[in-house]
Computed example of a mutant assay.
Amino acid sequence: MALLLAMAANIGVSTMVSSFRLTFTGFLDQRLASELYVSTESPEEARALEQFVAPLVTEVLPLLSVEAELAGLPAELYGARIGATYRDNWVFLDEAPEVWDQIANGSAVLVNEQLARRARIWVGDSLTIAPELSLPIVGVFGDYGNPIGQAIISEPLFAKLHPNVGATRFGLRTDTPVALRTALSDEFGMPAQSITDQSQIKAFSLAVFERTFTVTAALNVLTLSVAGFAIFMSLLTLAGMRLPQLAPAWALGLTRRRLGQLELIRAVVLAVLTAVLALPLGLVLAWVLLAIVNVEAFGWRLPMYVFPGDYAVLGLFALVAAILAAAWPARRLARTPPADLLKVFANER
């Protein structure tokens, strides 16, 4: 039972963390598509920057946002310049036909999963984004790690609703990020701290996540160690209690060494059966964590992936733990003095 619970917990938690890792990596590739991100000090500098980089980049993506109340909930409203970056990189949890065309012409809105679930709205429903302006929802996107809701409309519609809000941060798409960074520093005079590489943001984000992944791996080792210790103490206690059951087998001709081997084999077989039973239990636990607990706690649901290789390694570790736990009790049994075995028959008539 100790090994079953430990393995099921390990499978469930490691599946959740690994699924989150794959999803989060894909999410970063989607949301951090621009090769460089730059910040300006004023709207005037922002306009000058757009003019300067126009011949040097394939796309300029202004980062426009305001705090808003959407569906009665605190949220952020974004204005997007719809182009190849959005059309080629974004993946939706659910979407209507020609989603980007509808967003580009200002006739629809996108919402993240958090807002959709908390407000109980989905594709086909309407969302009020300004007084007397409601737009149909044409797409719901995953937004992992964000605690609040988000909605995205086109840049022209955003400018119409919030004419006093101008972009001072931009994402720049380019095939030559090093050359562009040099031009921004040397020719445009932009400070180095105002320019951020995509790779730096991704590396920092993944480094934070990897710490969580490392802690999970350490907890897996700890739980297996505790389970192995529980098995060891149980078998050590049972070794003396099983002498009356094993003595007749010894009297019939089985050697003490063979009895010890059989006890070790029995522990290994039980460990294998436990691993087989723990796998579906662990997968059910992972599904509950991803589809129910995560939604209630954070407002988004993570897709579930399976990792057969990891489960095989975990099963091997569990087998090793069982062998190590059973080795000493089996050795003690193999070296049990014959006199102790004969005492079992002392009261036989």
Results as ranks from 00 to 15, higher is better:
residue 132 E to Y: 04
residue 105 N to H: 13
residue 38 V to F: 09
residue 103 I to T: 14
residue 57 V to S: 09
residue 65 S to G: 07
residue 110 L to M: 14
residue 90 W to N: 02
residue 273 L to Q: 02
residue 200 Q to P: 00
residue 170 F to G: 11
residue 252 L to R: 12
residue 121 I to R: 15
residue 304 M to P: 03
residue 73 L to M: 04
residue 302 L to M: 09
residue 17 V to F: 13
residue 96 A to M: 11
residue 289 L to E: 02
residue 299 G to Y: 12
residue 133 L to Q: 04
residue 101 D to H: 10
residue 292 I to C: 05
residue 21 R to K: 14
residue 256 R to P: 05
residue 53 V to M: 11
residue 243 L to T: 15
residue 22 L to A: 12
residue 203 A to I: 05
residue 52 F to A: 13
residue 316 L to F: 07
residue 335 R to W: 00
residue 286 A to V: 02
residue 193 Q to S: 13
residue 230 A to K: 03
residue 37 Y to P: 04
residue 258 R to V: 08
residue 271 A to I: 04
residue 246 L to E: 15
residue 23 T to R: 08
residue 288 V to Y: 14
residue 125 D to S: 01
residue 198 Q to W: 11
residue 51 Q to Y: 04
residue 229 F to Y: 11
residue 314 L to G: 01
residue 5 L to S: 02
residue 263 E to W: 09
residue 80 A to T: 03
residue 96 A to F: 09
residue 114 Q to K: 11
residue 199 S to C: 01
residue 79 G to P: 07
residue 337 P to K: 03
residue 311 Y to D: 01
residue 334 A to G: 06
residue 129 I to S: 02
residue 181 R to W: 08
residue 32 L to D: 01
residue 115 L to W: 00
residue 209 F to I: 09
residue 347 N to Q: 15
residue 312 A to M: 07
residue 324 L to I: 09
residue 304 M to A: 08
residue 248 P to D: 04
residue 215 V to A: 15
residue 87 R to C: 11
residue 295 V to K: 13
residue 32 L to T: 08
residue 155 E to W: 06
residue 114 Q to E: 00
residue 262 L to I: 08
residue 203 A to Q: 15
residue 106 G to Y: 13
residue 126 S to Q: 10
residue 175 D to L: 14
residue 206 L to W: 15
residue 133 L to I: 07
residue 65 S to N: 10
residue 91 V to G: 00
residue 16 M to T: 07
residue 139 G to I: 02
residue 263 E to I: 14
residue 7 M to E: 02
residue 115 L to I: 00
residue 233 M to F: 09
residue 9 A to K: 06
residue 182 T to A: 12
residue 60 V to R: 03
residue 159 A to T: 11
residue 94 D to C: 03
residue 21 R to N: 11
residue 327 A to F: 15
residue 93 L to W: 01
residue 225 S to Q: 01
residue 125 D to T: 00
residue 203 A to M: 10
residue 128 T to A: 10
residue 187 E to I: 01
residue 75 A to F: 04
residue 308 P to V: 03
residue 14 S to G: 01
residue 127 L to H: 00
residue 70 L to W: 05
residue 54 A to C: 04
residue 162 H to Y: 15
residue 309 G to L: 06
residue 346 A to G: 02
residue 184 L to W: 11
residue 45 E to Y: 09
residue 325 A to I: 14
residue 243 L to N: 03
residue 121 I to K: 13
residue 130 A to F: 09
residue 338 P to L: 05
residue 177 P to G: 02
residue 120 R to Y: 00
residue 183 A to H: 04
residue 228 G to C: 07
residue 59 E to S: 13
residue 299 G to N: 12
residue 40 T to D: 06
residue 329 P to W: 08
residue 340 D to S: 07
residue 113 E to R: 04
residue 256 R to T: 10
residue 245 Q to H: 14
residue 107 S to W: 14
residue 166 G to F: 12
residue 286 A to L: 07
residue 128 T to H: 04
residue 273 L to V: 04
residue 186 D to I: 05
residue 80 A to H: 09
residue 62 P to I: 08
residue 163 P to L: 06
residue 202 K to V: 15
residue 216 T to D: 14
residue 59 E to M: 05
residue 236 L to P: 03
residue 61 L to N: 06
residue 307 F to G: 01
residue 247 A to P: 05
residue 207 A to Y: 12
residue 30 Q to F: 01
residue 65 S to D: 12
residue 147 P to A: 13
residue 329 P to F: 13
residue 299 G to L: 14
residue 204 F to Y: 11
residue 215 V to E: 15
residue 78 Y to S: 02
